[in-house]
Amino acid sequence: MNEMANSVTSINSQATGDNVLVVNNMKKYFSTKDKDCFVKAIDDISFTVRRNEVVGLVGESGSGKSTTAYSIMGMHSITSGEVIFKGQDISMLAIKRPKSLKREIQIVFQDPGTSLNPQRKIGEIISMPLRVHNIVPRSQTEKRARELLDLVGLPQDCYYKSPRSLGGGEKQLVAIARALTTNPSLMILDEPTSALDVSIQAKIITTLMELREQFDMSYLFITHDMSLMRNIADRIAIMYLGRIMEMAPTADFFEKPQHPYTKMLVSSIPVVLQEEEDLKPVQVESQGEIPSPVNVPPGCRFNTRCPEKFESCLVDEPQMVKVFPDHYVSCHMHDPRT
């Protein structure tokens, strides 16, 4: 029992100076018309993002990935739990955070078509945060904005263009340049490439990875594309119905997936080569659909779709357990109590 308690707490126990972001037992419930019903978008999650690390947050739609991102950004107030950024508690709304903190965390949204103001020129879009945060003297604003265009690999003539004259990939690069203006140390990427074609996605991803090296940033990368995560993430966390089901270093995650949901997810990825097919775990027939977050099933929330469920899965909520170094699973089959 003692051993288990250790392993549960140790998820965030390495809260050393190396951790950029620590999320402890975060919950976010949205109220509904019915006073006793809540949409449990996030239900008790804990994870960390270390310095210069890419953490992939993967899950199906409705699993609470984006809510997690918005809560960290301070766009939602969290119901309970805490978010700690570089030792500072930031569990409040963005509006209450000091400006110096806002500068440190930036976000890139999924659809660049709607996250850029169509009435502004690209130059104005990038200059705005430079002026708001006083990053450079006023006289230097345009020079710095042009440098940022260079950094993300956009041509200089973009400065006077409007977003509608750019392609989807270029718009996303503008959004990245805008996020870079304040020299953030944590960047949240909310499905930055899922609206783009693969040949363009490759360019965005390479640019992002170069920038991370250059500016020593950490990324929290939200996506549903597991193959992409295999290539760029250091650690992957899998979410299902507002909970993290498994969290592991990338190689571990694909070589020895522990949770039945992970196995199901990895085995349903469509792949292009036979070598990839061989890497997938034994085919787990995917069945059922994600239930509504209003009526979360009792016990383990995956029990409606799990091929390996037994009695305790229907009753008890499993705890996060450490199975390998840095590898955590929330499943009764790995719970020492069962």
């Binding site: 490759a202 991803i205 792949v271 890497l279």
Partner: peptide, 21 residues
Amino acid sequence: GLMNSIPKLTGDSILSGIPGR
């Protein structure tokens, strides 16, 4: 070009993409 842009499960490959549009 298209095949080289697809992220693979084998991992750790550098995606090249196709320049232009």
